[in-house]
């Protein structure tokens, strides 16, 4: 199930944050959202997830407007992992993941066989099975981040939107998290992920969307989007490139 957004405009606190952005999140692919701080990546993700409404434009999920869906139905189709997500109570690892089944009508004490299977699977794929019985406050920040990703995976949605999943993670876990997203895409899910790290974006994403100041600068395969002139226009610094494993990884080199 692909997701398309057209002409998304959003004004927050009388400040325009997005100026008519149109993008596509195809199924079977990881689409990376890149751009400098304040480019509008998080706002765009929230609009795509349907937890915020655009002032103009709309989001379609396989041709159906997202806003016509009830919140529960929408939540079954679109999973979203916000950046600031944080367990407010010292729940067990397994309870955190099982929250992902809530859109399917599950509760902590009401889990169907399908729910249990989805939870086990999500924990397996994020390497968090060992945390099932542990309290989240006894885990490290990286372990907690993986558990929250498992929560989003457990929903088994058609679209998975993740905001900066690697920010708190060690390099090893960053790779693990990106691999988990790729695996989701391989199952047919349309994955959208906001990333700060351009090298990570170049290596792990099928497509990239480059945003700057609330506008779409480029959209397409990483090799097409990560061009020196586009990057300099977006970030205001010059970029060089290093070749690694068949990818051209951008590196900021300094002010032009």
């Amino acid at each position: 199930m692909a997701m398309t957004a057209s002409g998304l405009r959003r004004v927050l606190d009388r400040r325009p944050v997005l100026h008519g952005v149109s993008i596509e999140l195809p199924a079977h692919a990881v689409t990376g959202l890149v751009g400098p701080n304040g480019a509008g990546k998080s706002t765009l993700l929230r609009l795509l997830a349907g937890i915020d409404s655009p002032d103009d434009g709309g989001v379609l999920l396989s041709g159906k407007p997202l806003r016509t869906m009830s919140p529960m139905v929408r939540a079954r189709h679109v999973a979203y992992l916000p950046q600031a997500a944080r367990a407010q109570w010292p729940l067990s690892g397994r309870d955190v993941v099982s929250l992902g089944r809530m859109p399917h009508g599950a509760g902590f004490d009401r889990l169907t066989v399908a729910d249990v299977e989805a939870i086990d699977d999500a924990m397996q794929r994020t390497g968090t099975a060992a945390f099932a019985a542990r309290r989240v406050d006894h885990l490290s920040a990286g372990e907690r981040a993986r558990l929250l990703l498992a929560r989003a995976l457990a929903t088994r949605a058609d679209v998975l939107l993740v905001d900066e999943p690697t920010a708190a993670l060690d390099p090893g876990y960053q790779i693990e998290a990106m691999a988990a997203l790729r695996a989701e895409a391989a199952r047919g899910v349309a994955v959208g992920v906001a990333l700060h790290d351009l090298a990570l974006a170049a290596r792990w994403c099928d497509r990239l969307v480059l945003l700057a100041a609330g506008r779409l600068l480029a959209e397409g395969p990483p090799a097409d989007v990560l061009q020196p002139d586009l990057l300099q226009q977006a970030y205001g610094v010059a970029f060089g490139f290093v070749e690694f494993g068949g990818h051209r990884l951008p590196l900021a080199t300094g002010r032009p």
Binding site: V78, A79, Q88, G100, L148
Partner: peptide, 12 residues
């Protein structure tokens, strides 16, 4: 219990 953003994402 994971905050209001996550609750919204869960359809609440």
């Amino acid at each position: 219990s994971l905050g209001e953003e996550t609750a919204l994402a869960l359809g609440v």
